[in-house]
Amino acid sequence: MSEKIKLYDASKCTACRGCQLACKQWNALKAGQTEHKGTYQNPPTLQPNTYMIIHFQDYVAPEGDVRWLFRKEACMHCTKAACVTVCPSGALYYNKEFKTVGMDREKCIGCKECVSACPFEVPRYDKETEKVYKCDMCETRITNNMNPACVKACPTGALKWLDKDEALKIAEGRVQQLGGDANVYGDKFVGGTHLMYVLKEKMDVYDGIKKDPKVPQSIFVWKNLLKPLSLLAAGGVIGAELIHYMIRGPHKPHPEHYEEAKKQGGA
């Protein structure tokens, strides 16, 4: 078994939303009361009970013709996953085989650190359960040799679950075949993502897409500098104290302090 990628080919997606439904079904996620706001896109955003949505976007190309753009939004399964780095509980972890980012919800303590850290704004916190929710690439399925539920449901071949090398090759091939502004999204940042897109339009045309996702700098300062520093500093202090104690000894009153007391006498 090897590293795998879920490839989403936006140029093939018909926005049938079989994937969105399958995701709810497999993960036994409850539906919420939504409201029609004048778009097909519903629920409007990811939610604790919605691990993925299909974006619907009207787009008038500079050439003047109308297009309808679709995009699947879900956890990108970063190779350098900020969420895993910050997660204090081990609830978020790398799947050793596939390098996807799994989630053991039992462990989640609802600290929301991942919520802030994720450059794709993926994890969603649920007040009721005090836990965070996101796509785990159908961990229970992939570890049992099945496709993720969304991939299985996809009728058009827009979603595929592939070995990494193959996925990259296919994605490149599609970009060549489509020509124009087609491009691959996901291979160039956060160490490469395990949900990758083939986009037909330039990346910045897509609403809500992260143009330059990065593991926040702050996480480095936090996890790589300050975190060890906290113990080092404390250790340093204790060491210094030991030395101080040995060299200087405890701080005791000087004779004068007693003298004065004598002078004073009992009050």
Binding site: S218, W222, L226, K227, A233, G236, V237, I238
Partner: peptide
Amino acid sequence: LMDWVYVLHVLGFVVIFAFFFV
């Protein structure tokens, strides 16, 4: 901004924790 809030929280901890031993 939030990203740095975490950093500050830990920074504060570094100081407080060290000072605690002092």
